[in-house]
């Protein structure tokens, strides 16, 4: 299980939700909002050997969406 804390200043909620929607085929995602932080929990990776890669690529994807959003 992986937990990622996104700062809402850079990653708006809409962006994170869109990224989750696009990545939902690779793992199970859950989202929590706390103050200015969005906590995303990633679990049940479809391919366990790719868990680290999916995790890191998900961060990059969120950032690229945030760049478009601004």
């Amino acid at each position: 299980m992986e937990k990622i804390s996104f700062c809402e200043y850079f990653y708006p909620l809409t962006v994170v939700k869109k990224a989750i929607k696009d990545y939902r085929g690779l793992a199970d995602f859950s989202i929590q909002k706390k103050k200015n932080t969005i906590i995303v929990t990633i679990d049940n990776f479809k391919k366990k050997e790719l868990s680290t890669l999916v995790n890191k690529e998900f961060l990059n994807y969120c950032l690229s969406l945030a760049a478009v959003e601004k």
Binding site: Y9, N36, L59, N60, L63, S64
Partner: peptide, 13 residues
């Protein structure tokens, strides 16, 4: 993004 994994934080807020 092509060469690295990037992550941004603002801490403390």
């Amino acid at each position: 993004l092509n060469d690295t994994y990037a992550f941004l934080e603002k801490f403390p807020q």
